[in-house]
Structures are given as structure tokens and as C-alpha cells.
């Protein structure tokens, strides 16, 4: 048995260290062949876990809410894995991963696995390794896998492509809630949560969210997402929100939306892998790295335009392929 096969087997046996190591293997990309064979080995066991995404601006209380949800799911005897994504510094490449601080009371619970992940330059609110890490937790038998996004901006839509449902957390008083509404991130939320409901302006925010969602319904086929009110610090509204989530999952499971969403996810994944692989082999065959300098010179001195240059090169490459 190869090392990777052994690792895959240990993941299936829910070995904590093996799960953690597998995720590092995926994250580090030091050996993509190993990574691929690990995921190949796990593939047929995927698809059992329910995947949530939780997103929203910084300071909205995502981790604290998550802490409460974990507590509730554990009471139902469900196991939970969390992937908490924080940004990497664009300057040093380092990161402070602190989301788990708010969930740390679950640290000694064997039914909970929290993994902090740095974005490592990946845009879209998650890390490049998040999608594959979900598969590891899924095959290790966790009932729920929850992704907490970075929560910095309005480009955080990738979580929609990874999760079965997305919780969008908003909070009154941050000043940018209306901006968020206008900018269109509203479309990624399947369920809206107004956290810190005891703050002034919570009810007004709820009305505004409902208003915008109502408008949205008129121009899309999507039905209006529910809007829940919570206070994570006071432990209020959590059970109600959880039953809204359960109902929603029930519904999309029944009407085929869940399967459609998962197929959609696979489609995107295939496209992604395809383009990455084609890109990599094209780069390899075209020998871009070593030729780039002379190409830059040619384009700079107007000897050739970028399109003309690359059309010619790729044409040559394809002809070469044909001959093989």
C-alpha cells in the first residue's frame, strides 16, 4: 500500500491526525500527484455530509454564531467539521488564524473538528484548498461540514459554489449593510441572519433586507429566502434559525434543488480542473517561463501584437499535438 493509500484509509477510519495531514497535503501542493491520488481514493465515499457556508462582513459574529450552531448540532449527536478561512498577508504570506478562538470550547470534543485555513492569495472568500478539504471531512464521516469565509468584501461568492446552503450574516450598525444589499452579494444567501438583534436598528435592517429580497424575487425565479434574527452572545434565536435551516434543507432535498446544486458544483469543479490542467500543460509545452522574456521584448518593440504572437505559438503547439 502506498503512503497515500494508507492515508486515505486512515481518513475513512476517522483518524484525526490523518485527516489533518491530508488537509495539509492538499493545502501545500508540494506534491500534486499525491494530492490527486488521495482525492481519487476518497471520491467514491463523498457526498454524505451536508455542507453549510457562513459568510458576512467582519464583526457580524460569524464565529460566535457558528459556536452556537455547533453546540446545537452536538446535542443532536451530529458530528461537525469547520473550515474557518482567514486572509493571508499579501506582504509576508503569513496569517493569524483566530476564528477558532470563539469556538474553542468545542476543542476537546471528539465530535468536532475545527481547521483554520489561510487564504494563501486565493480570492473569493475561501482558500484554494477549501473545496478539497470539504471532501476529506465528508469522507471521514462528519455529518456537517461548515465553511466560514473570510468576510471582507463583496467578492466572496465562491462559497456559494462549495456549499449546499449559504447563511449570510448581517448586523446593524456596521454602516455598510446597505452597501452590501446594493452590491448584489444578497444573491448568495439562501438564509439571512440578522445577528446582534438586541442592537438598535436590527428591526429596521430586517425590513430593509426583506424589501430588497422582495425586489429580487420579482426579477429572478428564486423564492424569497427567510430572514432570521439571532443574538449569538445571548444565545437567542439559535433554535429558530436551526429549524429554518432544517426546513430549507428538507425542501431542496425534496424538490431536486440540492442534487442540481451539487451537480452544478461538479460541473464547475470539472471546468476548473480542466482549465488548470490545460493551462499547466500548455505552459509546459509552450515553455512559457523560459520564452517569456523574449516575447515581452518583441511585444514591447512592436514586432508583434500579443494576440498574433500567441495565436501563432498555440497553433504550432496544436499542430505538434496532432502529429503525435
Amino acid at each position: 500500500m502506498t503512503i497515500v493509500q494508507k492515508l486515505a484509509q486512515q481518513v475513512l477510519q476517522q483518524n484525526t491526525r490523518a485527516i489533518a495531514r491530508s488537509i495539509s497535503l492538499i493545502e501545500n501542493e508540494t506534491d500534486s500527484a499525491q494530492k490527486e491520488s488521495l482525492l481519487d481514493a476518497l471520491h467514491s465515499y463523498c457526498g454524505r455530509a451536508v455542507v453549510w457556508g457562513i459568510t458576512g462582513p467582519p464583526g457580524a459574529g460569524k464565529s460566535s454564531l457558528l459556536d452556537r450552531f455547533i453546540g446545537r448540532l452536538r446535542r443532536l449527536n451530529k458530528t461537525v467539521a469547520v473550515i474557518a478561512v482567514d486572509p493571508s498577508s499579501p506582504f509576508s504570506g503569513g496569517a493569524i488564524l483566530g476564528d477558532r478562538l470563539r469556538m474553542q470550547k468545542h476543542a476537546t470534543d471528539d465530535g468536532v473538528f475545527i481547521r483554520s485555513m489561510a487564504s494563501r492569495g486565493h480570492l473569493g472568500g475561501v482558500a484554494g484548498a477549501t473545496a478539497d478539504a470539504i471532501k476529506v471531512f465528508d469522507t471521514a464521516g462528519f455529518d456537517f461540514v461548515i465553511i466560514e469565509t473570510i468576510g471582507v468584501g463583496q467578492t466572496e461568492i465562491e462559497v456559494m459554489e462549495l456549499a449546499d446552503l449559504v447563511l449570510l450574516v448581517l448586523v446593524p450598525g456596521l454602516g455598510d449593510e446597505i452597501q452590501a444589499l446594493k452590491a448584489g452579494v444578497m444573491e448568495i444567501g439562501d438564509i439571512f441572519i440578522i445577528n446582534k438583534k438586541d442592537l438598535d436598528g436590527a428591526n429596521r435592517l430586517k425590513r430593509e433586507v426583506e424589501y430588497v429580497l422582495g425586489l429580487q424575487e420579482n426579477c429572478t425565479a428564486k423564492s424569497t429566502p427567510p430572514v432570521c434574527m439571532t443574538s449569538a452572545t445571548r444565545d437567542e434565536g439559535i433554535d429558530d434559525t436551526l429549524s429554518v435551516i432544517t426546513d430549507y434543507l428538507e425542501k431542496i432535498r425534496g424538490n431536486g434543488q440540492l442534487a442540481a446544486r451539487r451537480k452544478d458544483r461538479i460541473e464547475k469543479e470539472l471546468r476548473h480542473i480542466a482549465s488548470a490542467k490545460i493551462m499547466a500543460s500548455a505552459e509546459h509545452f509552450l515553455n512559457i517561463d523560459s520564452r517569456l522574456d523574449s516575447w515581452v521584448e518583441d511585444v514591447f518593440h512592436k514586432k508583434v501584437s500579443p494576440y498574433k504572437l500567441l495565436n501563432r505559438k498555440i497553433g504550432e503547439f496544436l499542430k505538434e499535438l496532432h502529429w503525435q
Binding site: 493571508s88 509576508s92 493569524i96 488564524l97 478562538l101 474553542q104 476543542a107 476537546t108 475545527i114
Partner: peptide
């Protein structure tokens, strides 16, 4: 350490040895 390019997991005060070890293993 973050500024030196490392990924640092920070868990706050009052951690038991048990919680520290489990965290370290999960976070690899």
C-alpha cells in the same frame, strides 16, 4: 510570526493542555 510569514493559530487564554494538544493535531 505572522509578519515573518508563518501561519499562526491563536486560541486565546485559559486553555487546558488537552485542548491545546487537540487543537495542535487538528491544525496540523
Amino acid at each position: 510570526l505572522k509578519d515573518a510569514g508563518y501561519e499562526v493559530i491563536y486560541t486565546g487564554i485559559r486553555q487546558t493542555p488537552e485542548a491545546i494538544v487537540k487543537t495542535a493535531i487538528q491544525e496540523d
